[in-house]
Design a protein around this nucleic acid. Structure first.
Lengths: 191, 191
DNA sequence: CGCGTTAAAGCTAAGTGTTTGCGTTAGTGA
DNA sequence: TCACTAACGCAAACACTTAGCTTTAACGCG
């Protein structure tokens, strides 16, 4: 039976529900920052957030789904990618920054969390959509400048996917140079 | 304190240790096949394997690390890739089969398990090494035939990574055609 | 603006999984 | 063969999870 927890807990958006969700998310971030991952248990998070454990279990199902939610929130880009004036520079800068952030120990942990507690794949899908969104902004700008641009899917396959794969499966030996090489590989050959 | 469980439990390869490991792995596979993932708890696995739960906790640390070990074992290729006579056919066949196996619900689950209970990344690295190994066999054969071949890393970046990324992050809309397209993309342009 | 409705939270107790210390067993090497 | 020790079994203490029931507070309607 029973009780599949909803991955998108926004069931009653306003009021108490929202406050609880906010408090719980904040508690996760604070506890992790202060005491590390080992301290992240549902009872500890609940105590910190001022709610009872059963509230968390009912809304999120288990610890991993909660962490997955928090991870996705943290992986959401805070601002559109910087504009450097041309596609090559934009893509290269974005890829370099992506690899730097996601390739760090904490970035990798968020990526894994997002994948981990994600029965239906919607959280992972969200992460991917974030990246695709950022890339679309970059490509749109270039298109408006009159540059020749690759498709979003091409960039996902040739830039985002290789970086993400290596971050998850072969975390050693990643360099900004690698990100840059990938970014260049989707551009038309230099003049 | 404490006891980091070893991911490679082969500490005393012969005798009892080996028997216990085998029994536990078998118990995981049987229980999953018979009753589904929900039934996979450490006490249940222990009972099935005829050991005590504490044995499992001590050797593997927790359920996820055990599942990760089992997943890696299942992801190990059983035989070298088929030989179809030329690089294009070999790569295409391998990619298609990879996507078919890993893109299925169970394949995706193994991939996720492998990543999930893997504190130091060695299990994920093993998965990647399996794929790289298969590809090297294919490339070696082609090289021996006198064909022009791309580097292994290129194939990992352009074929394995995109498929794996999509399996994990965007499991919808994957087709054999996609695998084939990726395989072709690393080959020199057709004559 | 108060009132009924109901989703969501609180509380608590029972159930289940995890950890740990200590004694025992069985590989391993001299 | 014997001593040594890693790994296992056992059982009790501990922590986490689940479920039933009660209470609270958004929300919508008269």
């Amino acid at each position: 039976m029973s009780s599949r927890a909803r991955s998108k807990p926004a069931v009653r958006p306003g009021g108490r529900s929202a406050r609880v969700q906010q408090a719980v998310h904040a508690a996760v971030r604070e506890l992790e920052a202060e005491q590390g991952r080992g301290a992240l248990t549902v009872p500890a998070i609940a105590a910190r957030a001022g709610v009872t454990p059963s509230t968390i279990y009912r809304r999120w199902g288990d610890l991993h789904e909660l962490l997955s939610d928090v991870a996705v929130e943290r992986l959401r880009p805070e601002s559109p990618p910087e504009d450097h004036g041309d596609l090559r520079a934009d893509l290269s800068a974005w890829a370099t920054q992506f690899l730097d952030e996601m390739g760090s120990a904490t970035g990798r942990a968020y990526l894994r969390d997002a994948l981990l507690g994600d029965p239906d794949g919607s959280n992972a899908g969200q992460c991917s959509a974030y990246a695709a969104g950022q890339i679309e902004v970059i490509l749109d700008r270039a298109r408006r400048r009159g540059e020749a641009v690759p498709g979003v899917e091409t960039v996902m396959d040739r830039v985002v996917a290789p970086m993400t794969y290596r971050i998850l499966f072969r975390p050693d030996g990643l360099s900004p140079q690698y990100a840059d090489d990938l970014a260049r590989s989707v551009l038309p050959p230099a003049p």
